[in-house]
Structures are given as structure tokens and as C-alpha cells.
Computed example of a mutant assay.
Amino acid sequence: MKPVAILLHGAMGSEKQLFPLKQLLSENFDVYALNFTGHGGKAFGEEFGIERFSEDLVQLLDQKNLNNVNIFGYSMGGYVAINAALSDSRIAKILTLGTKFGWSPESATQAVKMFDPGKIEEKVPAFAETLKLMHQPQDWKEVMTHTTKMMISLGKSPILHSKNLKEVKIPVIIGLGAEDNMVSVHESKEVVNALPQSEFQLYEGFKHPIEQVDISLLANDLTEFFLKES
């Protein structure tokens, strides 16, 4: 029986973005991916945010009867994975990439500047069309509005902080692309310092979008980390 790997997408993303990575990992793992509530065509619920997405992950573990799972969390997916690990002992290891941990009112205000549906339609219509196709039949603009509200909320009250991060006592790698313009080395290393079993991994040449990373290199690192005995 193969070990289990779960892939979690980022904000405004979907599980389809992770299918190339899923394919590379499938030789060594039983690989699962999921769409968070309101993403990838999945219906909206009464809640939208990190807690709801963490519940989506927990529901997958319950439905598939999964245990001792390894998780790759891209961007927001990494935040969800670590939040879920605070209360779910079935999570064994986590590797995050491009996850923003340094939330404050100022950083949230800066982040949401890029989340303007009108400007996106006007200046990058091809990206708007990609988002439309990714989230249909849901309205991508509604997904973006909810995401903006989530970021503002995180800015006011971050869910992960130094006090609860110390409770995540599993091996974690905090990965960051050297060319990522959305996440800083400083905020990533602060999380590494707060987590009991964590290390920082800088990926040269990686930018923030998952489509602009070397998936083969990432798959190799995930395989090595997940298969290594703790």
C-alpha cells in the first residue's frame, strides 16, 4: 500500500492546477487533490475562509478513511494544511510553497490590490477568461470578492501565530521561490522559528504562480521528504 499525499491549491485556484504534480507523484503515492469550498466550480457554502477550507480537508480524510497523510500546500493551501494540523493528528508531514504567513492590516491591504475584477478584465482579459473557466458554474468575480474579504479578515486577526504554531509538532518544510514577489523570506523564516520541527527551503528560479515553478524538482523534493523516516 502506497503512502498518501494530498495536494492543496491556493487562493483563486483549483485542484486542476495541481494535476501535473499529482501525475508525477502518483508512482510513489496515492495522491488526492480537492477543490476548496467555492473554488473550481464547487458550490459556495455559508462560510468561506481558512476554517471552512480546513474542514474541507478534514472531510476528505474522513470520507476516504485516510491516516498518516503527507500534505503539499501551495500558497493558501499551506496555510490551510498547518491550520488543520493544529487539531488533526492524521497529518504526518507538510511542505508548503509560497504561503503567506505575515498577515497584518497593511499586508492585507497590499495583497487585495491585485484582486480587482474590473481591472483584471480590462488589463489581463486572458487571465479573466482563465478564472472564468476554472470556477464555472460559479462566478469567478464572486470567488474573488470572498477571497478579498478573507484576506482583510486575516489581516485583522491572523489565524496562525507564534503561540499556536508551536503546537504543530510534525515535520514541516516552509518552501519559498527566490523570485516570489508576494511572500518574504523574513515572514517564512519567522514561521520556521515558531514551528518545533521545521526547516526553510529556498527554490531558485521559482516565482509565485504554481505554473511558473519546476514541477519535476518540486515532485522530487516532495517524494524525498515524504518518504524519509521521521
Rank of each mutant, 00 (worst) to 15 (best):
L86E: 03
L86M: 05
S87F: 15
D88F: 10
S89N: 09
R90E: 06
A92C: 05
K93C: 12
K93Y: 09
I94P: 08
I94Q: 09
I94H: 10
L95R: 05
T96I: 09
L97C: 02
L97W: 03
L97S: 06
L97M: 07
G98Y: 02
G98C: 00
G98V: 02
G98N: 01
T99S: 12
K100R: 15
K100G: 10
F101A: 14
F101N: 05
G102F: 01
G102K: 01
W103H: 01
W103P: 00
W103Y: 07
S104W: 10
S104N: 13
S107D: 10
S107Y: 03
S107L: 04
A108R: 11
T109W: 02
Q110I: 11
Q110T: 10
A111D: 08
A111Y: 11
V112S: 02
V112Y: 08
V112N: 05
K113M: 15
M114I: 07
F115E: 07
D116S: 03
D116L: 01
P117M: 04
G118R: 15
G118C: 06
K119T: 14
K119Y: 15
I120D: 04
I120C: 06
E121N: 03
E122C: 04
E122L: 10
E122Q: 11
K123F: 12
K123I: 12
K123R: 14
V124I: 15
P125C: 14
P125Y: 12
A126T: 14
F127D: 04
F127T: 14
F127Q: 10
F127C: 01
A128K: 03
E129V: 07
T130I: 13
T130V: 12
L131C: 01
K132G: 10
M134S: 04
M134G: 00
M134T: 07
Q136E: 15
Q136T: 11
Q136W: 08
P137E: 03
P137T: 03
D139Q: 09
D139T: 04
K141S: 08
E142M: 13
V143N: 10
V143W: 06
M144R: 12
M144I: 04
H146D: 01
H146C: 03
H146V: 00
T148R: 14
T148F: 02
T148I: 04
K149N: 12
M150Q: 15
M151Q: 11
M151G: 01
I152R: 10
L154D: 03
G155V: 00
K156W: 08
K156A: 15
P158I: 01
P158A: 05
I159S: 02
L160T: 06
L160S: 02
H161A: 07
S162W: 07
K163D: 08
K163H: 02
K163L: 04
N164R: 09
N164W: 14
N164A: 10
L165F: 04
L165E: 01
L165R: 05
L165Y: 00
K166P: 05
E167K: 15
E167P: 00
E167C: 06
V168H: 02
K169G: 05
I170C: 09
I170Y: 09
I170P: 07
P171E: 10
P171R: 10
P171F: 09
V172D: 14
V172R: 14
V172I: 15
V172Q: 12
V172F: 15
V172K: 13
I173C: 03
L176G: 07
L176D: 07
G177E: 11
G177I: 08
G177L: 14
G177R: 11
A178P: 14
E179Y: 09
D180V: 06
D180N: 06
N181L: 13
N181T: 13
